[in-house]
Simulated scan of single mutants.
Amino acid sequence: MLQKLRLAVVGLGRVSKSHLPAVRELAHKMDLVALVTRDEGKLRQEAEQWEGVKTYTSYDDAVNDPDIDAFLLLLPHDLHAEYSIKALRAGKHVLVEKPMAMNVKEAEDMALAAIENGVTLMVGQSRRFFSPVMESIKKVRANEIGGLININALLLAHMNKPAADWWKDESKIGGFIIPLWGSHILDYIVWAYDKMPISVYAQGHSNNPNWSGEDEVAISLNFGEGQMANVLMSFNAGVRPADEEGLTGKRIWSTQNSIYERYLIGTNGMMQLKDEYELLLNGEKQAECERTNANFTWQLEEFADAIREGREPLASGREIIRVMKVIDACFESMRTHQVVPIQP
Rank of each mutant, 00 (worst) to 15 (best):
Y188N: 10
S220M: 07
Q299Y: 01
T297I: 13
K195Q: 12
A237C: 13
G204K: 06
G224E: 12
V231K: 07
W181T: 08
E245D: 14
F176C: 08
Y193A: 09
A202S: 13
G226F: 07
S220E: 07
Y201G: 07
M228R: 12
A218R: 05
V239H: 11
K285H: 03
L281Q: 13
L273M: 10
E284H: 12
I198C: 11
W298E: 11
Q203S: 15
G249H: 09
I252Q: 11
K168I: 04
A218M: 13
N295H: 11
S206G: 11
F296M: 08
G213K: 06
R262S: 12
N222S: 13
Y188T: 09
A287S: 14
W166G: 05
S199A: 15
A294Y: 06
E276P: 03
H184M: 01
N210Q: 12
W166D: 06
Y260L: 11
A287C: 09
S254H: 12
Q203F: 15
A304S: 03
I252K: 11
E301T: 07
I259C: 13
L279G: 09
L281R: 10
L273K: 02
A304Q: 01
W253T: 12
S234F: 06
E214N: 09
A202W: 03
G266Y: 08
D194Y: 05
E302F: 01
Y277C: 02
S183W: 00
Q272T: 10
G246I: 00
N210R: 13
W191I: 03
C289F: 03
Y193H: 07
L221G: 07
N208T: 09
